[in-house]
Amino acid sequence: MLLRVDHESSVSLHEQIAGSIRASIASGDLQPGEKLPPARQLADGLDVNVHTLLRAMQTLRDEGLLEMRRGRGTAVTGAAPNLASFNELAKKLVAEARKGGMNNDQILQIVKGQL
């Protein structure tokens, strides 16, 4: 797994970290069941606050990519590889739609229209 953050980017650090981990899951670099290193060790390497890193992990937990268990660390879920690639696609879709000047309702309309 290769994580990368740019401290001068306009994208917030926790989003960058979440994106990095998501990409690693989508590419198969992080396998289902694999455990992530303790947040403290990753945060130190990335030169970010531990809370920033935990926030990124919480985002991924909410997306269903990671499961966090007290005392047992953070692991990639079985469903993660699928979800990760779709989350990546959804992120791209939202970003493109915003560039096109669409608001949330319009984006949802488009997605719903495809269902």
């Binding site: 797994m1 290769l2 994580l3 990368r4 953050v5 740019d6 401290h7 001068e8 980017s9 694999e34 455990k35 992530l36 290193p37 990753l42 390497g45 990335l46 030169d47 970010v48």
Partner: peptide
């Protein structure tokens, strides 16, 4: 790798 960029590689 930019000056403000940080990278971490982890392999288990």
């Amino acid at each position: 790798l930019g000056d403000a960029e940080r990278m971490v590689f982890v392999e288990t």
